Amino acid sequence: MTEPLVTESSGLTPEQRLGPADPALITAGIVTIHDLETLRACVAYENQHRQRVPVLRRLAQRASELRAE
């Protein structure tokens, strides 16, 4: 059994960020991403598990924000 991928931004796994059913919790998980490595891990998780278009759109928006910083 492998350990879940924990990324730098607050030590949360992509599943912890994107797993809740509550959209407000998902949004909170996304806005607290502060590096592209974490963001890429979350995109990979979403593509592999749920493929929710609104979540992927929000992740793309956050990527643009991070690149602009």
Rank of each mutant, 00 (worst) to 15 (best):
M1K: 07
M1T: 02
T2D: 14
T2G: 04
E3K: 11
E3H: 05
P4S: 01
L5P: 00
L5G: 00
L5W: 05
V6Y: 12
V6F: 05
V6D: 00
V6T: 09
T7G: 04
S9K: 07
S9P: 09
S10T: 13
L12K: 08
L12D: 02
L12R: 10
P14W: 05
E15P: 00
E15M: 03
E15I: 00
Q16Y: 03
R17S: 06
R17N: 12
L18Q: 06
P20W: 08
P20I: 01
A21P: 02
D22L: 07
A24E: 15
L25W: 08
L25Y: 07
L25K: 15
L25S: 12
T27S: 14
G29A: 02
G29E: 03
V31E: 15
V31K: 15
V31D: 12
T32F: 06
I33T: 00
H34V: 03
H34S: 10
D35R: 04
D35E: 11
D35A: 01
L36F: 05
L36W: 02
E37G: 11
L39Q: 08
L39W: 11
R40L: 06
R40P: 00
A41H: 07
V43M: 13
V43S: 02
Y45I: 00
Y45S: 00
E46C: 00
E46S: 00
E46H: 00
N47R: 13
N47D: 12
N47A: 04
Q48K: 10
Q48Y: 04
R50A: 09
Q51A: 12
Q51G: 09
R52Y: 08
V53I: 11
P54K: 04
V55Y: 11
L56D: 07
L56M: 07
R57I: 05
R57W: 03
R58L: 13
L59H: 07
L59M: 11
L59A: 09
L59R: 09
Q61Y: 11
Q61V: 11
A63Q: 15
S64N: 08
E65Q: 13
E65C: 01
E65K: 08
E65M: 03
E65S: 03
E65I: 05
A68F: 02
